[in-house]
Design a protein around this nucleic acid. Structure first.
Lengths: 186, 186
DNA sequence: GTCTATAGCAGGATAGAC
DNA sequence: GTCTATCCTGCTATAGAC
């Protein structure tokens, strides 16, 4: 089926882009990872840039959803943020997250992907998480003081963890998230 | 002078490699950043890979020094780690750090750079910082429990901060490091 | 020492056979 | 639908003039 092969290629591309960036990923690598010939890729996508652009948009969409859902998770604000953190650290989201990372820091990004990224500022993310954090502060779960600043640090930290984790240090996060949440609770 | 021009090229290359990775950085960009013609670069270096390799080795050397010096800094273990953190976050070290990051995660790295990186495992870093941390624990400055694990998280966090910072969110770290050190002290 | 011009090659994209 | 062969662009690296 057409769409299934498409997904297969996207999956291979996501893995490589997240790891090696746009310029570092060759079409031949994507084809190999997907187990097809190099030329076939072009029956499903117009160009490397197109694949990259689509993935970046999906990643942002995905990330938006994860954040939007925090509020609907069960438990206290602390438990909500913990669940959110664990979700981000799982394999699938991690790749998306790293892709956005690559797109933001690294290299010359195709214009379409660039637009998507510019619409998706870290500021947005912080504003969405803010109410939950503030509620947690009121309940005495989190540290007092400038919430935005603390959340920036917290998100940076998640970034770092995902990158580190990508290098396969083999930590079991389910067990260790609490250390990370210390940033918020102290 | 020959060596000065060489440094000028290395400086330009470091900035770009740290930002865009090896594959994402073109020789033309390096030349432009250094304000010279593209061809001239090859009078000073054999290849792009050579420049990259040299920079990676310097970065690792630099990082080793920073870590080695922690113990000789004045103050309590907490103050020592604070000073170390601030040093890493300053412009120069940040670029080196990001370069190593790029080399570790991203792309196909030339063999010479690869060797250097493999000799420089995160495990090393942790082992070097460990004694200071343990001393801090004994003095009651840091949290009890598994030191290695906490240090991994801590270093991941520094990673994340440098990356985030690279995206110019304009935080004044001198003021905010304490949030980060909470990971160790709680 | 430095620049401009260009050779040579890697990799993105296309054509055509099966 | 898929593969192999090939075109063509863009980049690394070199040659040669000033």
């Amino acid at each position: 089926m057409f769409d299934e092969r498409k997904d297969q290629i996207k999956k291979a591309a996501l893995k490589l882009f997240a790891e090696k960036g746009l310029a570092g990923t060759k079409m031949s690598m994507i084809a190999e990872e997907a187990g097809i010939s190099q030329g076939l890729t072009y029956r499903y996508f117009e160009s490397k840039d197109e694949i990259f652009g689509i993935l970046v948009e999906e990643a942002i969409e995905e990330s938006r959803n994860a954040i939007r859902n925090i509020g609907t998770l069960p438990g206290s604000p602390l438990e909500q943020l913990k669940a959110f953190t664990l979700r981000l650290l799982d394999e699938n989201h991690k790749q998306y997250f790293l892709l956005v990372q690559q797109a933001q820091t690294s290299e010359v990004v195709p214009s379409k992907a660039l637009e998507a990224i510019e619409r998706y500022s870290p500021q947005d993310t912080i504003e969405q998480i803010m109410p939950i954090f503030v509620r947690g502060q009121q309940e005495g779960l989190f540290a007092e003081g400038n919430a935005a600043k603390r959340l920036i640090v917290f998100l940076s930290v998640l970034n770092g963890l995902m990158l580190q984790d990508a290098k396969a240090m083999g930590m079991n996060w389910a067990q260790d998230v609490d250390l990370v949440l210390n940033i918020l609770t102290k």
